[in-house]
Amino acid sequence: MRRTLVVLFTVVLLLLQIAVYIPVASSGNGLTIVVTFPFLYEDIDELVCKGDAVVNLVKPGMDPHEYLLTPSDIDLIKRADLIISTGHAPFETRIRELAESGQIHGKLIELPSISGVTILRHPQTNVTNYHGIQFYSRNYELLIEDVEHALEMLRPECASVYRASAEKLLQDLAALNSSVRRFSGWLAVVDLPPLQYVAVWLGLDVKQVLAREEDVPITPQDYTNAESIISSAKHVVVIATIGSAAEDKLRDMARRHGALFIALPNPLTYNGSLEYLRTVAQIVSNVSLATVTQQAGGSSVSTPMLVGVVLFVIAVSIIMMYLWFKRR
């Protein structure tokens, strides 16, 4: 009997040791999710289930357009279950190449390739603008829906969590859409490509984006063209990125021509796209139209000028009446 117990105990110990080396089924594992740009991190992190991990390749404040993948980045990407990319920066092109060559086995979602996404063109070059696509709210909605569906497929046991989280995000977006201030019928001049999508979300018709690309300097002719639009439009909003090379010049143009000026934070300093849109909505709500000089035919008409015109008309009227009575 004792010998039998010893044998059974030994077998149990062996089974326990073997069990340590048996891989855990994927249904019990959390997912590894990689996002390429900093402003995607919080939005995706809001979706995940317990045990999932979201990793941001490029940290806030860094320029993703100059980022190069490190060996540890490539190792992480190869192990990831899901990679979410804006699909336009050089390092994101490298990720696509790795996926196409079969070196990445996880699912790759590229924002421009999502069905139904609206992609704008640069007003001056007519080249596709891939910068900040998700800042147009419908595109953000499609991104969240696509990622949520992918998460469900990868980890079905967490489907209800993913659906509830996505629904909450989209409800927050809908509330923001219903309350944000719109500028229907107004024109816009913006300094950087991502702000084209922000301006369109605000209802603006973007006539110029000064920077033709993120790494292309703004030329004197670009400023001349911008001033021509600002000086001739009746209702125009000038939007500049805080700290950008164009901020001071655009602010001065807006002041001289009586245009509405709005300074917005750089989206790359944010960890989430929805949070950035909330910030934009708050800034826009605090802008006073009373500070905008009324324009007609491109000429600014100030209050002192109007007073002068009125006084001149009154003076002429008095003189005419005096001459008329004198003749009688």
Results as ranks from 00 to 15, higher is better:
residue 3 R to D: 08
residue 6 V to C: 08
residue 12 V to N: 09
residue 26 S to A: 08
residue 26 S to R: 11
residue 30 G to W: 00
residue 32 T to V: 12
residue 42 E to S: 12
residue 45 D to T: 04
residue 48 V to R: 14
residue 49 C to W: 04
residue 51 G to R: 07
residue 57 L to T: 09
residue 64 P to D: 10
residue 66 E to N: 08
residue 72 S to D: 11
residue 74 I to V: 11
residue 76 L to F: 01
residue 80 A to I: 08
residue 82 L to W: 01
residue 104 I to S: 05
residue 108 L to S: 09
residue 108 L to W: 02
residue 110 E to P: 01
residue 117 V to T: 12
residue 123 P to Y: 01
residue 124 Q to T: 07
residue 133 I to D: 06
residue 141 E to M: 07
residue 141 E to I: 04
residue 144 I to D: 11
residue 146 D to P: 01
residue 147 V to K: 13
residue 154 L to E: 09
residue 157 E to A: 11
residue 161 V to M: 03
residue 162 Y to I: 05
residue 163 R to C: 03
residue 169 L to R: 15
residue 172 D to I: 02
residue 173 L to N: 07
residue 177 N to W: 06
residue 181 R to M: 04
residue 184 S to F: 04
residue 203 G to I: 05
residue 208 Q to T: 02
residue 210 L to P: 08
residue 216 V to C: 02
residue 218 I to G: 09
residue 219 T to M: 04
residue 224 T to D: 14
residue 228 S to L: 12
residue 229 I to L: 12
residue 233 A to C: 08
residue 233 A to P: 02
residue 237 V to D: 09
residue 237 V to M: 08
residue 238 V to G: 03
residue 242 I to L: 13
residue 245 A to F: 00
residue 249 K to M: 13
residue 254 A to D: 12
residue 257 H to M: 03
residue 257 H to C: 07
residue 263 A to I: 04
residue 281 A to Q: 09
residue 284 V to S: 10
residue 288 S to I: 06
residue 291 T to R: 10
residue 297 G to I: 08
residue 297 G to H: 06
residue 299 S to P: 06
residue 300 S to E: 11
residue 309 V to T: 11
residue 313 V to E: 12
residue 323 L to R: 12
residue 324 W to D: 14
residue 325 F to R: 15
